[in-house]
Nucleic acid binder design. Structure first.
Lengths: 224, 224
DNA sequence: GCGTTAAGAAACTCCCGAGTTTCCTAAAGG
DNA sequence: CCTTTAGGAAACTCGGGAGTTTCTTAACGC
């Protein structure tokens, strides 16, 4: 969805006649949204420092003047991007306790999101790690709107399963963190050369993690 | 060890008489080493972009002239820092197959390293993630000198345990990655506010990860 | 139609950091 | 002791990016 928006915006911008004079009026809100989309693309792709206002304006097909009217400073644009991300972050599903354990976890992790959404999710995390010091809100956005609620959801679910006797007793918060780290640790895989995992690999990896995790927390497993 | 070096360097620098004229000669090698130590501190603390040559020179108590004689460009300094990091990276231990499984893994992870070493390890990973695009070698340093060998070591060990029947069959590479992600995922915990985990928490967390992991790969566990 | 005005293009200021140079001084070395 | 020379301090150039301004022009509202 978001990438499509980008595409639209960019293409529209490129197609927009670059004539002098006052262009057709457009709603400020639409304009802001378009800009934020482009900015998100840039920020996620290049990081905060390497993203330039000139670049954003150019890619939006607008002048810096307009850009600065809507976003008085680069930081405002960044914050708006983060806020937008928070708004559009996917709502967490209520896991169905009747579901098989593995499926319930897969649902919590939304393993079904598409490649682009996943790419954006990881890019956002990278950005957060890189610029968390300068912009606490990006770290907060990830933590408060993404990781934290998801972890709480997962931890609650784990606690319930433990009460049911479906899982052995184990600190739920710690367990939730472990599983999330396993599943999203793929992020680091980005280092050596080849890009992110493909959809298929990502799913397979997640399934393996869930497998190990569930066996690791199974009620009566033999100690190693 | 490294932090001590930093301390020494910084203090020595501050104590150095800031007089005009030619100072007492010192070995270029010593000088380079001092500079690299200071630079490492800066790079790890502030990232590549936020580290300035002026700042490094000032903290070293030397002039930019000397700094640029020894390191013609900022990138050279950065590369030297990475190279130094690679050199001083701890050699991996050969795991003793006779050890209890949990202890063997703890040894592979060097869970006994001190707080400062651990802080540096995590800072380096963060730096790598932030600047991997511009400086592939930092990502490579982590991957090739740190993560990769450790993962291979762990994977080999896992494979051996599987052959012995101490662990159930499971793709060893995937398993090694999972465990590493779990143990070092703590990294992400840095976001919200409070700093890194204390030594004690870190060890406890690692032990819990190992616990879940070993149960998850135990030979005859009940499916969940 | 016709003034008003909002937007584009582009030049501009300002700042900051990489890298260079100049001048000065004192250690090195004979 | 006196010349040579390496290093410190600081001023410099240069480039690039944030944010501003000016000029121009065409859409908008009457």
């Amino acid at each position: 969805m978001m990438v499509d928006n980008h595409g639209e915006a960019t293409v529209a911008a490129a197609a927009r006649p670059r004539v002098r004079g006052r262009p057709k009026q457009r709603s400020d809100e639409d304009e802001r949204q378009r800009i934020v989309s482009v900015a998100r693309e840039q920020f996620l792709d290049a990081g905060y420092g390497a993203t330039t206002m000139d670049g954003v304006a150019a890619r939006c097909g607008i002048s810096k003047k307009t850009l600065y009217r809507l976003f008085p400073a680069k930081t405002d644009l960044f914050r708006a991007m983060v806020a937008d991300h928070r708004r559009t972050m996917l709502a967490l599903p209520r896991p169905d306790d009747a579901l098989p354990l593995a499926e319930a976890i897969a649902a919590i992790f939304r393993l079904d999101i598409d490649e682009n959404e996943n790419r954006e999710r990881l890019a956002f995390i990278r950005l957060a790690m890189a610029d968390a010091d300068r912009f606490p809100e990006i770290g907060e956005a990830i933590t408060l709107e993404g990781a934290e609620p998801a972890r709480r959801l997962l931890a609650d679910w784990l606690a319930r399963q433990q009460e049911r006797g479906a899982l052995r007793p184990f600190p739920p918060q710690a367990a939730a963190r472990m599983l999330m780290d396993m599943v999203f640790g793929v992020l680091v895989k980005r280092f050596p050369g080849e890009g992110l995992l493909k959809q298929e690999e990502r799913l397979a990896h997640a399934q393996r993690c869930i497998d190990v995790f569930l066996h690791g927390l199974a009620p009566r497993s033999e100690p190693a």
